[in-house]
Nucleic acid binder design. Structure first.
Length: 715
DNA sequence: CAGCCTCGAGTTCT
DNA sequence: CTCGAGGCTG
């Protein structure tokens, strides 16, 4: 197309040529943008797209007369507006009745009501429904006249909404001009004179995160009036409500179409719902037509049959929810047959033929009762927000971590604040943000204490570190307790029956001071404790006894050397074979171990440079803690799964995760914790989450539980 | 030197 | 599960 590059704007013949190229460029760019933004399947390299775009801008600057307000270069057109204008909706934007009953009953109730309204007999066939996701964003009415976007209006109160056209135009997924992309899927052969498309404007989770990161950068650089957003919904609402479209354009929004408002086929026709019904026989037809016109329609919309179909959809989407790239707050069921929809009509402002079925809220409001500081095994001080109990996502939450000083400061949570609490991703509650409007008075900002709240030693933050640490070491009772628990845990020497309560008592009473004390305890010191009789005391001693026979890797891990976790302990054990050669190893020798760098090496060396640590190791051995001589590492290369790396996710029915991990490792395989290009295969059980998605993206082999047998039977 | 791949550590509730 | 950071690789 560079044939046209030597255009002379003053030559009328050239102007005709330019007109042809302009329309070619617009079509090409619009098509590429559709493939990229709506289908998420780019067909040309970004550089090519940029080239076309620049060329279009260039031509438009040469021929201002030919500038089309709906050109793809004009998405962020026009100046900021002064104030929002209210518009009456041609067809009211109704709200949906919400089915609150959780689980299956909500879906069953809806189906029962529909069957009753339609006077269906017991033995009548199942009713056909379209089931869709209920996106957590803002409902929007987008009006096209003669195929051109002329107005976008928020839902408002359903009757009147605000004109936000200037911001909606910046959404790349929304066409500025309608074009029939798939004539076969269209219920009507032409583009209507007037078409109002309804759908949800929302922000994807990744876009939300990127936006907040950018906002944080700006704040860090001292930009005034900038803030981070509490959740994608608020960020989307904020973007739509901008007066200046340039700001809206920086906050990437997305769109899903799911319905229509006013539709007119001729200049002078009236809005006739009956006519619509004759064209879109089903809701599915309608969705297909919207798709054929270039609108994004969510792929999870499904045709289902009867109550059972609805129940299953609700369940399946509930599981899918946490892996979706955007927030949903429920699902929507719609009677598929539009003729029947007409028949049922409305009660007040709600259609009888559709219902929203929500999931338990994943976000709730509550108040902060206090901020406590916990001391971890490594001495790390962690601020934890104590919350007034709140039911979120199926459980009652009372605690939420604030991670560290910076994080607490960034969120600026203060005692007495009203906060949004969420159960993110899986289970762990987090404080999403503070509702500043609800802050009463001016409580003092959180400040990390200068001394450990447990032992009162100095708390220090090293340069470049995010954490404050208690300097008390093992003199600090909190750290000492954690050290015993760490040594006793299943992945270390595995002392069953030695739990938190018991360790608390034993440390407080002074029975346990150093690790070897565990093996010197007599029956009498145990029985002396509260709630401990001879029977349970004997059990504890039995567990301690059987923990004496262990492996070098477990023992090493149990010592709790900084930066030496389960995997590094295994690497060290394999490399050195004995504790004595490890204890004597120089920094250089340590660096020779794979995956050990300067930080880990110096951490290990420092640990054994302290004589009391060497003493602890020797005493433990003297108490009878032993492990077998390790296999010469040369043997492992011949194992059947040598060199392979697996990742386990989801719930397996026939194995525990650890059990499977050990099994695979015995066969010479490595079991890693996250999926990457180097992963041989992902072993996926029930309700696998983000790792499965990632593996699919990377095209990594996925092994389900049935296929696991053949893998393990390589032996 | 940047970017990717892992590991370590901390966290909640039933 | 997630974040942060250590270590390796291109």
């Amino acid at each position: 197309m560079d044939l046209f590059s030597s255009i002379n704007p003053n030559d009328p013949a050239d102007q005709d040529t330019a007109q042809i190229e302009l329309s070619y460029l617009k079509d090409a760019i619009n098509l590429h943008a559709y493939n990229y933004y709506v289908l998420d399947a780019p067909t040309v390299p970004d550089a090519e797209y940029d080239r076309l775009f620049k060329r279009l801008e260039h031509l438009e600057s040469l021929y201002p007369d030919l500038l089309d307000p709906n050109s793809p270069t004009q998405r962020v057109g026009g100046a900021a507006i002064d104030t929002f204008v209210s518009h009456r909706h041609a067809v009211p934007m109704l709200s949906l009745k919400t089915e609150t009953d959780s689980e299956s009953t909500g879906a069953q109730n809806f189906d029962a009501r529909i069957r009753k309204e339609l006077s269906l007999e017991m033995d009548a066939p199942l009713v056909e429904y379209m089931a869709e996701l209920k996106f957590d964003g803002l409902a929007m009415n987008i009006r096209y006249e003669a195929g051109k976007l002329v107005q976008a209006t928020t839902r408002g109160d359903g009757e009147y909404g605000e004109d936000v056209t200037h911001n909606i135009r910046t959404i790349s997924q929304i066409p500025l001009e309608l074009k029939i992309l798939d004539p076969g899927a269209l219920a009507h052969p032409t583009i209507p004179k007037v078409l109002e498309v309804r759908g949800e404007v929302y922000m994807r989770l990744d876009d939300f995160q990127k936006l907040n990161e950018r906002q944080r950068d700006r704040i860090a650089k001292g930009a005034r009036g900038e803030r981070t957003f509490v959740n994608p919904r608020n960020a989307a609402a904020g973007a739509v409500r901008q007066l200046d479209p340039r700001i809206a354009a920086e906050r990437p929004l997305s769109f899903f179409a799911y319905g229509v408002g006013e539709v007119l086929w001729n200049e002078d026709s009236q809005y006739e719902p009956k006519e619509l019904v004759s064209i879109f026989k089903t809701h599915k037809d309608l969705l297909n037509s919207l798709k054929a016109l270039g609108f994004p329609v969510n792929v999870n919309a499904e045709l289902v049959h009867g109550a059972q179909g609805l129940v299953s959809y609700h369940q399946r989407m509930g599981e899918l929810r946490r892996t979706l790239p955007f927030d949903i707050d429920g699902v929507v069921y719609k009677l598929n047959d539009t003729n029947l929809q007409q028949k049922l009509g409305f009660i007040t402002r709600e259609p009888k033929w559709a219902v929203a079925h929500k999931y338990p809220a994943q976000e709730e409001l509550t108040t902060v009762i206090g901020i406590e500081v916990q001391v971890g095994r490594t001495g790390k001080l962690t601020p934890v927000a104590k919350l007034s109990p709140v039911f979120v996502g199926g459980v009652t939450v009372t605690n939420a971590t604030l991670h560290n000083q910076d994080e607490a400061q960034r969120k600026d949570v203060r005692v007495g604040d009203t906060v949004i609490v969420r159960r993110a991703g899986d289970v762990i509650p987090e404080v999403v943000g503070v509702i500043l409007d609800k802050r009463v008075g001016s409580p003092t900002p959180f400040q990390m204490p200068s001394h450990c709240p447990v032992c009162n030693s100095l708390a220090l933050r090293e340069a470049g570190e995010a954490d404050y640490r208690c300097t008390g070491g093992l003199f600090c009772p909190a750290q000492r307790k954690q050290a015993f628990l760490h040594f006793a845990q299943r992945k270390a020497v595995n002392i069953e029956d030695l739990g938190e309560k018991l360790v608390d008592q034993l440390v407080d009473t002074g029975v346990l001071k150093t690790l070897p004390d565990m093996y010197r305890m007599g029956l009498s010191s145990l029985i002396a404790l509260e709630r401990m009789a001879e029977k349970s005391a004997t059990n504890v001693l039995k567990s301690i006894e059987s923990s004496k026979s262990t492996t070098l890797a477990r023992f090493l891990f149990g010592l709790g050397i900084r930066h030496v976790g389960e995997t590094t302990a295994k690497d060290l054990s394999k490399h050195f074979g004995s504790i004595d050669s490890l204890m004597q190893a120089s920094i250089e020798e340590l660096l020779a171990v794979k995956d050990v760098g300067p930080v880990v090496a110096s951490s290990v060396r420092t640990f054994f440079d302290q004589s009391h640590n060497v003493e602890v190791v020797n005493q433990l051995r003297a108490c009878g803690v032993t492990w077998p001589e390790s296999l010469p590492s040369a043997l492992s290369a011949t194992l059947p799964l040598a060199g392979k790396t697996y990742v386990i996710t989801g719930t397996l029915s026939r194995f525990g995760r650890e059990e499977l991990k050990e099994k695979l490792e015995t066969l010479g395989a490595k079991v890693a914790s996250s999926v990457s290009a180097k992963t041989t295969a992902l072993i996926a059980g029930e309700s696998a989450g983000s790792k499965l998605t990632k593996a699919q993206e990377l095209g990594i082999q996925i092994i389900d539980e049935t296929a696991l047998d053949s893998l393990l039977n390589f032996e």
